[in-house]
């Protein structure tokens, strides 16, 4: 667990972000900060603005006002590739592998922006060690893999870009309950390698049990911002997200 008192400069920061889709106001004055090596979680129901938050962080959506700050630099107008090159990546919801490409090709595409052949080979080995199943199926089309295997490839693909922050969009979505547990163990394993994790989840209980801090997003506004422990203890949150009366 990281120290919450001295976290240095945030890698990634939202400063008063407002986002619109046409006339619809999605994110309203959102402030977030992700520090090196920490594990944070963004909670929220459907249409609360979670996905938009991720897309704005990655540059797939441009905010109307406010600043997206990467390592102290405002990157509002920088493309996704710029941010990926600087250590941000995402494991998308439903994994979204390139199904017609082989597992190996998927992993290679993860390292698309890198040119260090030796480093790439090394990382590939690391991922194979982490997920032996992936190695077995390296030359298979990724569309033929099971859901759990696909999750491994998706994480492997994200790790191939050597991220400092890994954004995870609904990692437990669409997985069998047994796999959800394994999946969270994997996330913890990655986190232990020093990679900051920003996890968007509906499964608040699971997410908060491994996270350091958390935000709760409601109709585009951050309504709660606290440590994971406090959030877990928050009766209002328990009522709305953990299904407790």
């Amino acid at each position: 667990m990281s120290d919450t008192t001295d976290k240095g400069t945030p890698i990634l920061e939202f400063r008063n972000i407002n986002t619109h889709y046409g006339a619809v106001h999605i994110l309203k004055d959102v402030n977030l900060a992700i520090y090196p090596g920490e594990m944070v979680s963004l909670l929220g129901g459907n249409a609360s603005g979670k996905s938009t938050t991720l897309k704005t962080l990655l540059g797939m959506v441009t905010p109307t006002t406010g600043e997206v700050v990467l390592d102290g630099e405002v990157v509002n107008d920088k493309p996704t590739s710029y941010r990926v090159e600087r250590g941000i990546t995402m494991v998308p919801e439903n994994r979204r592998l390139f199904k017609r490409l082989s597992v190996l090709e998927n992993l290679q595409l993860g390292a698309y922006l890198r040119n260090d052949k030796a480093g790439i080979a090394e990382d590939l080995e690391r991922i194979y060690t982490m997920f032996p199943r992936v190695k077995e199926r390296a030359n298979q089309k990724s569309g033929t893999l099971s859901g759990g295997e696909q999750q491994m490839v998706a994480m492997g693909r994200a790790l191939m870009s050597r991220p400092r922050v890994l954004l995870m969009d609904e990692p437990s979505m669409g997985l069998a309950p047994m796999l959800v547990q394994t999946n969270f163990e994997l996330i913890q394993q990655i986190h232990q390698e020093g990679i900051a994790i920003f996890m968007v989840e509906q499964n608040a209980n699971m997410a908060l049990s491994i996270a350091d801090r958390g935000w709760v997003l409601q109709t585009g506004k951050v309504v709660l911002d606290d440590t994971a422990e406090n959030l877990l203890a928050n009766p209002e949150l328990r009522k709305s997200y953990l299904g407790e009366a």
């Binding site: 990655l58 797939m60 493309p79 996704t80 590739s81 990926v84 090159e85 990546t89 995402m90 998308p92 979204r96 390139f98 199904k99 017609r100 490409l101 595409l109 993860g110 698309y112 922006l113 693909r157 870009s161």
Partner: peptide, 11 residues
């Protein structure tokens, strides 16, 4: 196959 994810790869 997937333009959004491709751009996420930095393509």
């Amino acid at each position: 196959e997937d333009k959004e994810i491709a751009s996420l790869m930095g393509i």
